[in-house]
Nucleic acid binder design. Structure first.
Lengths: 224, 224
DNA sequence: CCTGGCGTTAAGAGGGTGTTAAGGCCCTTC
DNA sequence: GAAGGGCCTTAACACCCTCTTAACGCCAGG
């Protein structure tokens, strides 16, 4: 789960933001002071930090400096002041973004999403690993247990990609057909049977009794 | 040199910004329309893009979408409007930052610096070495196993560079065409075949059965 | 027994790909 | 100003792969 550290002493605002973030599936760690924020950052290794400059005791810019001394986690700075000086300073100290109050919750959430994209751009290879093969979504490559490349045709790959993205979930036949062939093919369930057979032949250890590509009769398929 | 593409139709502001940027050692490419911006982006491969939303003809958001279809270059969006809708939309379309006019030059410059940090975080791998040849991305040179220089034409080099930067990844034909020839050539798959043949003839030990430049039929090419 | 959904296989049609070479443009050189 | 070379574009052809389609067998439920 994506973890976000929120360093802010205005508990009312912080709580509202935390609720919004949690409602969207993020895990939120709260810190009310700069010291606490640094400690929590070290302890929980968040995927992004939202940092309010208006903190008691320790100045927000000092917190920023301290964080940047050891981590490249995306940091979004919030400020009540619209002063250029601190804005420029914060950005040059390594903040990824600077948002001035007042701002809408939607905007902040969008900026958090943008910041999270930066964090994952270089790291995080979207990989699905099983006991018998592994799927590299970024490289568009499938390798078997010995590291040999498994060749898939474009259609086979698209089906695998859709199933892998919904790992564990049931994907309806109509949905699969629409995502791979387009909306006008949603009745061509024959195609699915042919291609599921191909995928099983190439990836299942025992194609005749599938372990990863499960058929849910009358409904669709599931990858697990 | 760090190259910045500035897409803005207000020539007075654009010119002032260009002067400020050039004074700080950046190379600036100007584009007055969205179409021009897309063409320049494909041609010059900037390290960052500053995009004004208030463009004639083509909407700024469409430009953003078109850019994000093939490049991850940092994009800073400027806007006169302070509307949340376009702000959120732009950020979710892949903009790295969103700045509302009026703003100070210092702030924009600081945000450009911050955006450039993102761009360089993941890039840079100036040498690619294989068993049969090595590629020096910085020097734009390719040498074979005996250290002899291998001569490539500009187009051959660009293709090789794109593939080498995405080492191991599958590069779609459309992406390759857009990055080398520009967005308006994305259907000219003939070009690719001619140039892939040339690259294989010059670099593959056995051009007829490629070891490094792998074709994924119907999808694209992969360098590994 | 019949029906409908599913798995499997194979073959033809169509489109994608590798390869070579000729024509034309631009730049350099004399 | 003319000649030459390098490079890009375009065309033509043969070949290979993929998609589609059809046929058949299997199983479960009506």
């Amino acid at each position: 789960m994506t973890r976000i550290l929120l360093v802010d002493d205005e508990t009312r605002f912080a709580r509202a933001l935390a609720i919004s973030l949690r409602a969207r599936g993020y895990e939120v760690v709260l810190a009310a002071t700069g010291e606490e924020g640094l400690a929590e950052a070290a302890r929980t290794h968040p995927d992004a930090v939202v940092l309010d400059l208006g903190l008691p005791n320790l100045d927000g810019l000092d917190v920023l400096r301290a964080l940047r001394a050891w981590t490249t986690v995306p940091i979004i700075v919030l400020s009540a002041r619209d002063q250029d000086a601190s804005k420029v300073e914060a950005l040059d100290l390594g903040a990824d973004d600077y948002v001035t109050k007042p701002f809408s919750m939607d905007e902040l959430l969008a900026r958090i999403r943008a910041a999270l994209r930066h964090g994952t751009k270089s790291a995080d290879a979207p990989m699905v690993v099983t006991e018998h093969f592994s799927i590299d979504l970024a490289d568009k490559r499938v390798t078997d247990i010995r590291g040999t490349n498994v060749h898939l045709t474009p259609t086979e790959w698209q089906i695998l990609e859709v199933l892998a993205r919904h790992r564990g979930k049931l994907v309806g036949q109509r949905q699969l057909l629409q995502e791979v062939w387009g909306p006008e093919y949603e009745k061509e369930t024959d195609y699915l049977r042919v291609y599921m057979a191909a995928l099983r032949r190439k990836l299942e250890p025992v194609p005749s009794s599938p372990q990863y590509f499960i058929t849910e009769p009358g409904m669709g398929y599931r990858f697990s």
